[in-house]
């Protein structure tokens, strides 16, 4: 990666890179495969440390992982909704996040679960909160020569969760709006909440206002309409086609 710099692209599952290459949005001179890196697809869990997902783990591996099903039902639900099994059996979570595509689902749920990512290069490693990792359309905090190697999800902080993926056309479509939420409530009072959104802006993002407006509020219906509107004010969903159009336009300029 260091030798080839911008001319090189990394490939794992190939479910997004190949499409981009076919559409001539990317034309790397060198494609570097991660297939032979041992243990990159490992998923481990312990109750103190939480969940560690190797960047090479496939969507389907995460969906079907016993630890994920038991301790992170939000992740199970989210990965279950990504495309369809043929894609999930190929695409990796590292590739998904590093692609920086705001239309994909896993990032929002991982943000709602306070995930952080490990970025590795020959100079060493650094850790970043996932919501700080996404910068713009297809742009992440990854520096040249750097590789996303691991996703760390701490032990679940808030037991309540929900995931909504709105697809107007086919069930297997990209979301028009994706909402992932984790919530801690006590006696009907919301104490803590975190919300991840996809397909609503140029990146997958963490909705920043929920704490202020929700924590301490007493509500029998945690996701009341007023509350939801407040949350979504900064995010403007668009038709999937419109999102694609701006994405394509962006790529054709660069």
């Amino acid at each position: 990666m260091e030798r080839h710099g911008e001319d090189a692209r990394v490939i794992a599952g190939g479910t997004s890179l190949i499409i981009m290459m076919r559409q001539r949005l990317l034309m790397p001179k060198v494609v570097i495969s991660l297939a032979r890196i041992p243990k990159l697809d490992r998923i481990t869990y312990n109750s103190n440390d939480g969940l560690r997902i190797g960047a090479g783990a496939r969507h389907r591996d995460i969906e079907l992982s016993a630890a994920v099903q038991k301790h992170y039902p939000l992740l199970h639900e989210t990965f279950r909704k990504v495309a369809q099994p043929r894609i999930r059996n190929m695409g990796t979570v590292g590739g998904n996040l590093a692609g920086g595509d705001p239309l994909t689902d896993p990032g929002a749920s991982l943000i709602a679960l306070d995930a952080e990512v490990t970025l590795s290069s020959s100079k060493g490693q650094r850790r970043l909160r996932l919501d700080e990792f996404f910068i713009d359309y297809y742009q992440t905090a990854l520096e040249p020569g750097e590789l996303l190697t691991e996703i760390h999800v701490p032990p679940p902080q808030r037991p309540g969760w929900s995931h909504i993926k709105f697809t107007p056309r086919s069930i297997e479509d990209f979301a028009t709006v994706g909402v992932a939420i984790t919530l801690q409530a006590k006696n009907g009072t919301c104490e803590d909440v975190r919300l991840g959104l996809n397909s609503v802006a140029s990146t997958i993002l963490r909705a920043k206002k929920p704490k202020k407006s929700c924590a301490g509020n007493r509500s029998t219906m945690p996701l009341s309409e007023k509350w939801a509107r407040l949350r979504l004010r900064s995010a403007i969903p668009r038709t999937t086609t419109a999102a694609r159009r701006s994405t394509n336009a962006r790529w054709s300029k660069s």
Partner: peptide, 16 residues
């Protein structure tokens, strides 16, 4: 054409 593929040009799948 901006949706010349089956991820953007949606035909129904089995699950639809």
């Amino acid at each position: 054409p901006i949706n010349p593929n089956f991820s953007d040009y949606r035909i129904p799948s089995m699950r639809d």
